[in-house]
Design a protein around this nucleic acid. Structure first.
Length: 269
DNA sequence: CGAAACTCCTGAGCGC
DNA sequence: TGCGCTCAGGAGTTTC
């Protein structure tokens, strides 16, 4: 479900409710997520204050004086702020109880993760992550240099979190359309000039999507229960067979790196 | 080493 | 109404 804009929307949604708040209780209803949740989590976290709510790639980081709770939403995870007494829904796996509200993690497919780390950025899963796409450190120059000699297609290259974090299937598809680059183009064959356009496209699309509260395809809701509106700005994703908004040509659908891909054969070379 | 395939899991939508 | 099939927004692990 979530790509970077949805994770950032989630972060912004929960921050005002939990930053500075003390955790009163922790309930774990299902430990079997991507990795088994540490059974000692309630003991570790109860009584701790959340001092910061940040994000690294698609990982959410809830900082306390003792260490950091790392939450990944996987494909189908979501966080909601609810009243303590609100009935638990199917697939609500973890709950952090604060003074009056609770933060609940719901994740039907259980591809998400809840991890505990003293130094989260040293966790092997986070240590090798590439730059944040919205940071100055994400530049055409580094992409260009890192891509020399790389034969794999540009779509899988920009979706690789070691290259740049947070670009998932929807936004990779959209950014390549905006940049006029064919998704199967070899990363190593793309000029510096075209990487400049691509980096600009990625930044712009992600910024706009965050502003719109993310993309709701069927079920993404922010922690207050509101959907994201970027869906209405999607130019190619989910529009295979329809007319290109730019040239009118029929958009083509294909499966690339086992992921649905849509592109305009005339606009993207 | 890089690149591609495979894997985890549930639910929605479709054709019959 | 039900069955079986396909597909889904991620990414770590395995295989070639």
């Amino acid at each position: 479900m979530p790509e970077l804009p949805e994770v950032e929307t989630t972060r912004q949604g929960i921050e005002p409710y939990i930053k500075g708040q003390k955790i009163r209780a922790v309930r774990i209803y299902e430990r079997r997520l991507r990795w088994l949740i540490d059974a000692k989590l309630p003991t570790i976290l109860t009584g701790e204050v959340i001092t910061d709510v940040s994000r690294r790639g698609k990982y959410l980081l809830l900082t306390t004086a003792k260490g950091t709770l790392i939450i990944h939403l996987g494909m189908s995870g979501s966080l909601r702020m609810v009243d303590h007494h609100e009935e638990r829904k199917k697939h609500d796996h973890v709950e952090l109880q604060f003074e009056t509200l609770s933060l609940r993690l719901n994740d039907p497919r259980r591809f998400g993760a809840v991890l505990w780390a003293k130094e989260p950025l040293e966790d092997p899963r986070l240590a090798k992550l590439g730059p944040e796409p919205l940071a100055r450190s994400f530049q055409a120059k580094t992409l260009f240099e890192r891509s020399r000699g790389i034969k794999r297609n540009i779509k899988s290259f920009i979706m690789d979190s070691a290259i740049v974090v947070g670009v998932g299937n929807i936004y990779a598809t959209e950014a390549l359309f905006q940049a006029g680059i064919h998704p199967e183009q070899a990363a190593g064959n793309i000029s510096h000039a075209r990487y400049l356009v691509l980096v600009k496209a990625i930044k712009q699309i992600l910024r706009r999507a965050i502003k719109a509260g993310g993309t709701t395809l069927k079920d993404f809701l922010d922690p207050d229960g509101k959907p994201g509106y970027f869906r209405f700005n999607l130019k190619v994703y989910g529009r295979g067979g329809e007319a290109c908004v730019s040239c009118g040509e029929e958009l083509k659908s294909m499966v690339l790196n086992q992921r649905a891909t849509v592109y305009c054969p005339r606009c993207q070379k």
